[in-house]
């Protein structure tokens, strides 16, 4: 099953199960079914709760907050995650704050879905990975689409938090297959973290969210073949608040080298937050500080050759890990 199909099926299952769930966004109704076709069929099945909206990210996110305030559930599709900037006030100052600023905990069940990332030539304002701009906001949890995490379970977890969540979906994942890992690697999912490993003790641990997991895995494969560097990949479903999985302890004791990969451009990255968590818990066990691997600083260009040069990919991940380990 393709990732897009899994996500679409999860949304359909939720709409069928939760009579108070709304899905709002630009161009989400049939026959268009959303810019990336993730909502295809949903408005046909649930015409009064799957609503196409005007181009008004601020108001649509506010509508979702109003529904959540009334005890409903709401999912917002932001057509391109870059446009979540237009919804930032509602997320930062209203939806997340409302959970705690009125003195007692107020449940706010809403998820803002954001297709993100480059690699498709959409240019500087349609290609960003804006996750880092949302890190550190109290009562705003961040999740990322992953081929290893069933989306129905992820959405159930997000709604169970009863606080606003932003769900980042790397666009290049939509057409990939769910859960596929080629031998000698194998994958196990536990506690919201997928662990892709070779079985034995690793030489390095790579932490990467869903959108770059396949690129990190491709680099790990070439590192194994060409350099005999064995890596373990950890793919967390939840980016923030970030928790290290229990299994990380054994991996970091063996490897002593940790890398964080993400597509974000340089500066104030999610990886810096992850590194801080790893350093606080494992500083004495590390051979060297956590290495951050991400795209170059600057805007994301449109032309294919320029975009390729800017974004993190299999070969930049490979080189960064090889140079760090081999020197």
């Amino acid at each position: 099953m393709r990732v897009a199909e899994n996500l679409n099926a999860a949304l359909a299952a939720l709409l069928a199960r939760e009579p108070n769930l709304y899905l709002l966004g630009e161009d989400v109704v049939d026959p268009y079914g959303g810019a990336f076709k993730i909502t295809r069929g949903l408005s046909t099945g649930f015409p009064d709760r799957v609503l196409s909206t005007p181009i008004s990210e601020n108001a649509v996110t506010g509508l979702a907050a109003g529904l959540a305030l009334s005890g409903d559930l709401a999912i917002v599709e932001i057509m391109f995650g870059d446009f979540a900037a237009l919804a930032f006030d509602q997320l930062l100052n209203f939806a997340s704050k409302s959970v705690s600023m009125y003195g007692s905990r107020l449940p706010m069940r809403m998820v803002v879905r954001c297709p993100v990332g480059g690699g498709r030539g959409y240019g500087p304002t349609h290609s960003q990975s804006p996750q880092k701009h949302f890190v550190g906001i109290p009562n705003l949890a961040l999740y990322e689409l992953s081929p290893f995490h069933d989306n129905l379970a992820v959405f159930e977890e997000m709604f169970a938090r009863a606080e606003p969540c932003v769900f980042f979906e790397d666009k290049v994942l939509y057409t990939r297959r769910m859960g596929a890992v080629e031998p000698p690697f194998s994958v196990e999912v536990s506690g919201g973290v997928a662990r892709v490993s070779l079985g034995g003790p690793p030489d390095c641990v790579v932490i990467a969210p869903g959108g770059v997991a396949h690129r990190a895995l491709a680099a790990m494969r070439s590192l194994l073949v060409e350099e005999e560097i064995a890596g373990t990949l950890l793919v967390p479903s939840r980016l923030y608040p970030f928790d290290l999985p229990d299994v990380f302890d054994a991996d970091v004791r063996a490897a002593r080298r940790v890398f964080v990969v993400e597509e974000s451009t340089a500066g104030g990255t999610w990886g810096a937050e992850v590194a801080h968590v790893v350093h606080r818990r494992h500083w004495g066990r590390l051979a060297l500080p956590v290495t951050l691997i991400h795209s170059l600083g600057g805007v994301i260009p449109t032309a294919a050759h320029l975009e390729r040069a800017a974004l993190v990919n299999e070969s930049t991940i490979h080189s960064a890990i090889r140079e760090t380990i081999r020197g």
Partner: peptide, 10 residues
């Protein structure tokens, strides 16, 4: 205002 509109929708 958008939040109130959401409540009104509910």
């Amino acid at each position: 205002l958008p939040v109130a509109a959401g409540v009104a929708l509910h």
